[in-house]
Amino acid sequence: MSAEAEFAPSGFSSVERSGRSAGNIAAAALRFGSLIAFAAILIVFSITAPYFLSVGNIGNVLGQSAISGVLAIGLTIVLIAGGSNVVTGGIDLSLAANMGLSAAVYASLTQLGYGDAVAIAASILTGSLIGLVNAIAVVYAGIVPLLATLAVMNIVAGLELVLTGNTVIPASTPILSALSASDPFGIPVLAYVLIDFTVLATAVVQYTPLGLRLYAIGEFPDAARAAGLPLRRLLAGAFIASGVCGGLAGILSVSYLSGSTTGSGEMLLPVVVTALLGSVFPRRLVPTITGTLLSALLVGFLSNGFQLLNISSTLVSGIQGLLILIVVSATTLLRRQEA
């Protein structure tokens, strides 16, 4: 879409340099703009809904965002390694269904009398197997990710129905209760889980050579290949990592909902939005783990604030849609200016 980008001889003209610095200012404006918008939303809600800015409520939002946050972080890893083109590049549509199946596996195993250790292992295994199937389909069979993960999504959603018979399977075990509890300050354990997971994922993706390589194969696959990076293995690894995130989110959702429930597919589009929206926070406007966390929290705070203000929850989806469009339009216009 960026028409001029192909024309531009890579940077030696002074004109371009000045254009780029103007672009940098604009990009900074957007970045701070989005952070300011985030802060403004928090301020408006905290003035209109007094309970909003209490520790307990912030903890609640973090806890409620844990499931979608973990899923969106998984998707972010695929976005990083697969590149920014959503159709031919990185996308994993099977994540929400993955969470549903992993949750169903967990709940079914506890119903059969197995302990937490087995159930946790089985959920993670389920998630990573789904990731592996995606990886094989995309990397080795060469199916475009959008299509491959769409087919896998159908299979996984079907398997969940087979396993649960489209019913709710209750589950309650020591670890699930511990996860869904709150600490003495009233902050849900899930909030800590989200923060810990984000820290871990950030450490790996943003601060290790492995993470840099993921960015390299996503943004400049040819250069990465020339540099001798194992493209296929890295991309396959990204899909498997995303699958593991699905499994983890499954465990979290079993604890949050005290069992496995139907309708996990509803999570798909919000998660895609969260992950895509995340690229507006970092400096270079690329997907990052922390950016995704911020966007998950933004969405979480929005729905929470609406609930506290008694505004119909039907508006949340519309506002999410508007947010994507505003953010993406702004980013696109800026990039155009930059190029």
């Binding site: 589009l269 895609v272 939005v273 949340v316 989806s317 519309g318 849609g321």
Partner: peptide, 10 residues
């Protein structure tokens, strides 16, 4: 995708 979300709300 944005249209889809806004459409749902509307």
């Amino acid at each position: 995708l944005g249209t889809l979300f806004i459409g749902r709300s509307v």
